[in-house]
Structures are given as structure tokens and as C-alpha cells.
């Protein structure tokens, strides 16, 4: 494609050149090899081009290279620093997370321990309270039993005395004490049951 366009433009140039040449003018000045300026132009160009090449390769381009290398080094250094900082921050974050977890676990353990202790204390208190209540209950029951026994004894006495009196009044003789005791005991047990 490039070849075609350049060929077309060349053909255009050459035909225009030919047209002007036909008009009686000179052809393309570029092809006028008899002109000494054509040769000198190339010689001077060779000198200028070589000088430009030397200046660029020895002086100009190394300056650019230096700056580009310095920039690449700066960027690489900054990236390394950023990576190192990231590693540090990751480590710090991990440390913080583990510390948080540890603190969490410790707090949980303390809470559990406190709850357990409170439960144990409450249980112990309940046990002592129960024991005291049982003891008081037992004492009260024993007191009640004693009172009941004394009351029953008093009743037996009264019943025996009353029975002896009733028998003596009705029958006119003093009854056998053992029989009376036995009968009162039977009657009392029958009532109590």
C-alpha cells in the first residue's frame, strides 16, 4: 500500500516535472547532477549527520537514559518500600487480630470462671442453708416429739389417774395398777393410730 502511494506520488512528480520540462523549463533541480551544490549538499550532510550522531550517542541520549534509569530505580525503590510497609502492616494487623482474639478468649474464660465461682458459692451457701434448715427442722421435730411424748405421758398419767378414780368410784375398789396401765396404754395407742 505504501509502495503504491509512493509510486503514485513519484509518477505524479515525474509527470509534473516532465510537463514543466516540456514548457521549456529545466527539470527537477534534484536530478541536476551537474550542479556542484548537489554534491556539496551530500558531503555537508554526511558531516552534519555524523556530528549529530556523535553528539546524540555520546552526550544527548545518555542524559535521557540516566534520567529514565533514575526514575525506574526510584519507582522500584518506592515499590519495594511499599511492599515492605505492607508486610509490616500485615504483620501488625495479624498481631492485633491475634491479640484481640487472645483478649477475647481471656475475658471469656474470666467470665466463665466468675460464673462458675458464683455458682459454686451459691451451691455451697445453699448446702449450708439446707443443712441449717434441716438441723433446725430436726431440732423442731425433736422438740415437737419431746413435747408430744411429754404430752402423751401427761395424758397417760391423767388417764390412769382418771381411770383409777373412775374405777374406784364405780367399783369401790382400788384396781390393779398393772391392768389399768395396760388398758390405758392400749387405748392410747388405738387413738394415736
Amino acid at each position: 500500500m505504501r509502495g503504491i502511494t509512493s509510486l503514485a506520488s513519484l509518477a505524479f512528480t515525474l509527470t509534473t516535472s516532465a510537463a514543466f520540462a516540456a514548457e521549456g523549463k529545466r527539470g527537477m533541480p534534484q536530478l541536476d547532477v551537474a550542479n556542484p551544490l548537489i554534491t556539496s549538499q551530500v558531503v555537508w550532510m554526511a558531516i552534519i549527520f555524523f556530528a549529530l550522531y556523535l553528539l546524540l550517542s555520546r552526550w544527548g541520549l545518555p542524559k535521557v537514559e540516566l534520567v529514565l534509569k533514575a526514575r525506574a530505580a526510584t519507582i522500584a525503590g518506592d515499590l519495594d518500600a511499599a511492599r515492605a510497609a505492607k508486610v509490616l502492616s500485615d504483620a501488625a494487623r495479624d498481631e492485633m487480630m491475634s491479640a484481640t482474639q487472645k483478649a477475647h478468649a481471656a475475658a471469656q474464660a474470666q467470665v466463665t470462671a466468675a460464673v462458675d465461682q458464683a455458682k459454686a458459692e451459691a451451691a455451697a451457701q445453699a448446702v449450708t442453708a439446707n443443712a441449717r434448715l434441716d438441723r433446725q427442722l430436726a431440732e423442731a421435730e425433736s422438740r415437737i416429739a419431746a413435747a408430744r411424748a411429754s404430752a402423751v405421758d401427761a395424758l397417760r398419767e391423767v388417764a390412769t389417774t382418771a381411770t383409777v378414780d373412775v374405777v374406784a368410784r364405780l367399783a369401790g375398789f382400788a384396781p390393779d395398777q398393772a391392768v389399768i396401765n395396760d388398758a390405758v396404754g392400749r387405748a392410747l395407742t388405738a387413738r394415736a393410730a
Binding site: L37, S40, Q41, W44, M45, I48, F49
Partner: peptide, 12 residues
């Protein structure tokens, strides 16, 4: 004197 053309000036 040295046939330095305007073309060479442009190169400079």
C-alpha cells in the same frame, strides 16, 4: 566558498 547550501543550513 565551501558550497554550503540552504539545505545544509536546515540540517543544522
Amino acid at each position: 566558498s565551501v558550497n554550503f547550501t540552504q539545505s545544509n543550513t536546515m540540517m543544522l
